[in-house]
């Protein structure tokens, strides 16, 4: 945000620098259960973003004074790998990472039935391997899939999307150039069933009407991404299990001959 340049972010045909229409998302791919040690895990590729999410717990919260006798605490940790951006990112939590960890924890907590597990913690690790703008939302989207994979009770799969303003126009899902040279970025996450907003931040300036428009746009996209999450989970757990077992059985029989 705020960087100056002569680059035109929207060309004369109304297309953006990566050829997308104003309301077009970047390609998204979600994979479930990619890590064996974690209780639940997911991997997401969202445009140029590559993010791993791992969930542990509910487990006894440590240190003990962090335990809450009436509910579980949700600990999300957002971390960017040193190699995730063009110029080496200094490892370790910085002001930005601490803030993102906090807002993601709170967004997930809004959906999880925390009161079912007093004195425990649910730990969510989000590792950004490659960043290309919109990592907090991509990380959150992967984290809620990982939570479902870990069998944690929740109201719904939290999902999000960003919208923003570039060259005076409201567009969906900014990429890195648009984020750097655009006028505003508004990440948003919702509980899709109730459309309750669980995370919303804004960087830059927009008018009241533009914000309203951006929220509508991001919500609509989030509902679409919600279906991708569900498909990814079903792909792991349904996987034509019955056919698979039959194939295995046939293979066994053939080997025996």
């Amino acid at each position: 945000m705020g960087m100056q340049s002569d680059i035109k972010l929207i060309d004369e045909n109304g297309l953006r620098i990566d050829g997308r229409k104003p309301d077009e998302l970047r390609p998204i791919k979600i994979e479930v259960g990619v890590l064996n040690r974690a209780d639940g895990s997911a991997y997401i590729e969202w445009g140029g973003n590559k993010i791993l999410a791992a969930v542990y717990g509910p487990r006894e919260a440590f240190p003990k004074h962090t335990q809450n006798p009436s509910r579980a605490i949700v600990n999300a940790r957002y971390n960017m790998a040193a190699f995730s951006v063009d110029e080496r990112k200094r490892p370790g939590p910085d002001r930005r990472a601490i803030e993102i960890s906090k807002v993601i924890s709170e967004a997930l907590e809004a959906s999880i039935f925390v009161e079912q597990f007093p004195r425990t913690s649910i730990d969510v690790y989000i590792e950004v391997l490659q960043a290309d703008a919109g990592t907090r939302i991509a990380g959150l989207t992967a984290a809620s899939v990982a939570l479902a994979d870990a069998g944690i009770p929740m109201k719904d799969l939290v999902v999000g999307c960003a919208a923003g303003k570039i060259d005076g126009k409201i567009v969906l899902d900014l990429n890195k150039e648009e984020d750097n040279y655009g006028e505003a970025d508004l990440p948003l996450a919702i509980i899709p069933r109730t459309q309750e907003i669980v995370l919303m931040q804004m960087d830059g300036n927009m008018t009241r009407e533009e914000v309203r428009q951006a929220i509508e746009m991001a919500k609509k996209a989030a509902l679409f991404i919600s279906n991708l999450q569900k498909e990814a989970l079903r792909a792991k757990y349904e996987k034509g299990e019955i056919q698979k077992a039959e194939e295995n059985l046939n293979a066994e029989v053939n080997k025996g001959e």
Partner: peptide, 15 residues
């Protein structure tokens, strides 16, 4: 792994 498959008992028997 195959807990949701039907005919699992038979598959295990053949194994």
């Amino acid at each position: 792994e195959e807990s949701t498959a039907s005919g699992l008992t038979d598959a295990v028997r053949s194994r």
